[in-house]
Amino acid sequence: MAGLNLILVTHARKLLEVECSDVGLPGRKGDMGILPGHTALISTLRPGELSYQPAAGGARRFVAVAPGFCEVADDTVTVLTETAAPAENIDAASARAERDELAAEYDRASFEEQAGLKDRVDTAQARVDVAGRV
């Protein structure tokens, strides 16, 4: 059976390399679903929720990712991001606390500062969302 190979890399390590039957990516312009045989693609990613269905079976898995980009070619999905946290590794309470803290900072920030903070707030929010998936 043709499957997809998902490789998730952060600057600190290769986090994942798994066979899966489909991958969901948070594209900058909207969510994307990648199935085997997808055309070659390069896209930027917004902070959000990456999901995949392991080929080995079992439940669908979720990973919170920071902004980055992805490359799809030859049924291999390579995702590069600054941080990534699989759902099972996230502590929901501390994720929520971090989100609230950043959101408060965002509200206090000036308009120019907000631009720089936006991605961090969204990343924290993604982590909270993903933690709720387990």
Binding site: R28, K29, A40, I42
Partner: peptide
């Protein structure tokens, strides 16, 4: 031939 989303320049 890649598909780019958004454009090459923006990426």
């Amino acid at each position: 031939d890649y598909l780019y989303e958004p454009s090459e320049a923006e990426i």
